[in-house]
Write a protein that binds this DNA or RNA. Structure first.
Length: 469
DNA sequence: GATCGGCACACT
DNA sequence: GAGTGTGCC
């Protein structure tokens, strides 16, 4: 599959935290739920709300109590607390599970950031007065290039015709690992003792997460950044190098930095101005496998050799991924509209068939009954009560095959809906390519562009839609 | 006396 | 590169 015949799937996990909790307590599936941090202040603050609850007007950011008023049946899951601070480990671990599945089954998995894509998209909408990207087709290459510049205009011209060859970067690790906490009102940190405690608490969390990251990803963070907001409302961020992973070192470095902003006498326990937000962040990750790093440096950037030699101490700092920035901005414009589709398709084995034979799939499905998180299907289907989600019950595997009328391959019966999807996607692509080769746009392919429309579809109707012949 | 915590990224 | 600010979920 080359760049002209590829499928990029964007997976968007809706109210992911809620799903994680529901997976642990399936009795709440289908019911209005949310995940909140902390209990005491008006029932905690909601950081995730499922669709059942959104129907009642419950939104992220609301207080648990307010959600109950809007929706009496609303159930609140509470985020785990460690050292008096919300701890999101459970959701990070679940996210890592998802990425493990994706990485195991796909060549390229990129963690997307739609931030810039969203903004660029809005600019284009504003500029050309269009609502959907397909509407840009009425503009000539010349017109697009005049407004957007030669490069971007050309890219956009192709994009609206389904031509997009930018490589998908294989990157799905965090670039920073951070822990922070607010201390509002009277809870502000106004003494050295309080600050020392919280430096330690945050340092401990960062340490634990960094150790785990080091074991799993064979890399080390090199930079520690301390961020705080004072009662004066100014925010300060200061960094220092990380030489070794150690709770005490993180805590002491953080405290040392904070003490620089204490206007009180160093003999006093009082700290002014008080701290209303404190955070520690670790970044600048480098591979801890040393064997290839030096060689890489020399082969990648011969021009930098001298610099690197002369600054032996900072050799690590030079290596960061210099070249990845260019293509990112471009690719993101495409991402927003596609986002909407993928959450639905994740329920099935939408992808796996492209890489594995049906025989492999069959044996894998069987083994998945015993093993745990080895596929996305098993990840979700164990917990779902919705019969629409495939004919899933994986226990009843008895080698039922259907021959696909299009490709004549033998397909497991319960994989047929997605197999159909494959043909549908392929035909769409071919149709697009055909249309593109004829310069004049004949009849545009009808696309689903409205997020609401897609969200309102049932999973069943999505999976079982038949390719029209 | 309170929309938290945590991520990425652009800008300077 | 360091620090600040923004935006999103």
């Amino acid at each position: 599959m080359n760049a002209d015949h590829r499928v990029i799937a964007l997976i968007d996990m809706d109210c992911f935290y809620v799903q994680v909790e529901q997976r642990l307590q399936p009795e709440f599936l289908g019911k209005p739920c949310g995940v909140a941090q902390y209990y005491t202040w008006k029932g905690g603050g909601l950081i995730a709300v499922n669709y059942e609850a959104r129907n009642f007007g419950v939104k992220r950011g609301m207080r648990g109590e307010q959600a109950k008023e809007l929706c009496p049946d609303f159930h609140v899951f509470h985020v785990q607390e460690v050292n008096g601070k919300a701890n999101l480990t459970r959701y990070r671990d679940a996210s890592a599970d998802v990425f493990r599945v994706l990485n195991a089954n796909f060549k390229l998995v990129e963690k997307a950031s739609i931030d810039e894509g969203g903004k660029a998209g809005e600019r284009v909408m504003e500029l050309f007065q269009v609502e959907y990207i397909g509407q840009l087709r009425k503009y000539s290459l010349d017109a697009l290039q005049t407004s957007m510049g030669e490069k971007d205009g050309y890219w956009l011209f192709n994009l609206t015709r389904g031509i997009e060859t930018t490589a998908v970067n294989s990157r799905n690790l965090y670039k920073t690992i951070s822990a922070s906490k607010n201390f509002p009102g009277k809870t502000c940190l106004d003494t050295i003792d309080k600050i020392r405690i919280w430096c330690h608490n945050l340092a401990e969390e960062i340490f634990n997460r960094l150790e785990k990251d080091r074991a799993e990803n064979k890399r080390r963070a090199k930079l520690l950044t301390v961020t705080c907001t004072l009662t004066t409302n100014e925010t300060i961020a200061r960094s220092c190098p990380i030489n070794e992973y150690s709770i005490d070192r993180f805590a002491n470095d953080t405290l040392k930095i904070l003490k620089q902003y204490n206007k009180n006498s160093s003999t006093s326990n009082i700290y002014t101005p008080a701290i209303i937000n404190l955070g520690i962040s670790a970044g600048k990750f480098l591979d801890s496998v040393n064997t290839k790093s030096i060689a890489d440096l020399f082969s990648k950037q011969t021009t930098k050799v001298e610099t690197i030699r002369s600054t032996e101490n900072t050799i690590n700092w030079q290596e960061e991924d210099g070249e990845e920035e260019d293509n990112n901005i471009e690719e993101k414009v495409l991402e927003k509209p596609i986002t909407t589709i993928t959450t639905l398709s994740i329920q099935g084995d939408f992808f796996r068939k492209f890489k594995k034979t049906d025989e492999q799939i069959n044996t894998q499905l069987k083994s998945e009954n015993k093993t745990t998180t080895s596929s996305i299907t098993s990840f979700f289907s164990r917990y779902t009560t919705n019969e629409n989600v495939l004919n899933s019950s994986p226990n009843k595997i008895d080698d039922q095959y259907i021959t696909c009328s299009k490709c004549h391959k033998s397909i497991l019966m319960w994989n047929m809906p997605e197999h159909d999807d494959f043909h549908y996607a392929h035909e769409l692509q071919m149709e697009e390519n055909k249309t593109n080769s004829i310069i004049k746009t004949s009849k545009p392919i009808k696309r689903k562009t409205n997020k609401q429309k897609i969200n309102n579809q049932t999973l069943d109707s999505f999976i079982n839609k038949k390719p029209k012949n």
